[in-house]
Amino acid sequence: MKFIYLDNLPINNKILLILKNAQYETCTDILLDSENKIKAKTKLETEDIQSLLVLISKTIYTENPKSALEIRNENQIEKLSLGDKILNKVLGGGLPTKSGIIEIVGESAVGKSQLALQLCLMVQLPKHLGGLKGDALYLTTETFYSNRLETLKYYFMLKYGKYFEYDPCQHIFVETLIDLEMQQHYLYYYLPNILEKLPNIRLIIIDSIAFNFRGENNILSFQERAKILTEIAVRLKEISDKKNLIVICINQVSDYINDNNNKLSNEKVPTLGLTWSNCINMRIELSRNSINYTDNDEFVHKTQPEIERILKVIHSSYMPYSKCKFIIRDDGIKGII
């Protein structure tokens, strides 16, 4: 919507003065009020108000709607490979840019942060190898697993080292958000500046989005928390769309509690409640299957028994429910059949 002052429109001087006395300065001010509200503020005749609204509408809405083809060409979505054919297939070829907020949720030590670190390496690959030829920004509210990243990088470079003349860790930028106040300030104000200074960032990880909202760290009313979560989501979605990048928020789970504070079952639910669930665009759930898996791949040194786990696309605005099994090896997360 164009920002136009009423002074720039061919409006009768008497009516213009009345509008200004009623605190109307721009066309937007008029359009945001109903016809009845304008009449109550200005005491203008209905006919004059309707003529004014027609004039403003013709002045502001001068462009024709875009065709579906134009929109498709403007929104060329790219996809980031997870580094594994089975995982990519479940996710429709990879994680898309301009996809709003992608949440990865699951219990502790199920592989959420490992998948995030794996993506921080994959995003740096050339596009023909499934990467986005970009950098990663890792915003941590807990612990950054630098030792695990080094292990992943070792195997990553064995496979893709010829495409790099630098250490991939140089292009993974890490910030620690120690409390909710810092988290809000960073996401609201500092993050847009960072993206201007580092325009090659194509992946943003927040690990985890829930930690600074925990009861022991902050005491917020339901309304306060909902307001903050909604504001954070709006900003992250705008960034994903305008900067053509991927935003991933890692979330935790908690017991399913009823209104009487009783645990109903062994079922786990994502933290942050319904407000946050309505903000995200895709939810990927990781869980354990508690079955040992025998892997005969000799490429990777085995440091611990491999346990089957499950990756599920629980809900998404652009793809159906799907799932696959996976294991965690020294070289990363791998899908299994």
Rank of each mutant, 00 (worst) to 15 (best):
M1V: 14
M1W: 10
N8M: 11
N12A: 04
N13K: 15
K14G: 01
D29C: 09
E45T: 04
S51N: 15
I56D: 00
T59D: 10
T62R: 11
I71K: 09
R72Q: 14
N75M: 03
L87E: 07
N88T: 05
K89D: 12
L95E: 09
I101D: 04
G106P: 04
L137I: 06
L152Q: 03
K153E: 02
F156C: 05
K162N: 15
Y163F: 15
Y163N: 13
C169G: 07
M182G: 05
L187I: 15
Y188N: 11
P192R: 08
P199L: 05
A210E: 05
F211C: 10
N212T: 15
N212M: 13
N217P: 00
S221N: 12
E224P: 01
R225W: 05
K227T: 13
K227C: 11
T230K: 14
V234G: 00
I239F: 08
K242T: 13
I246T: 06
C249R: 07
Q252N: 13
S254I: 10
I257K: 02
N260A: 14
L264D: 03
T271K: 15
T271L: 12
G273H: 06
I284W: 05
I284A: 09
S287F: 03
T294E: 13
D297S: 12
E308A: 13
I310M: 13
V313C: 11
I314T: 11
D330F: 08
I333M: 12
I333F: 06
G335K: 05
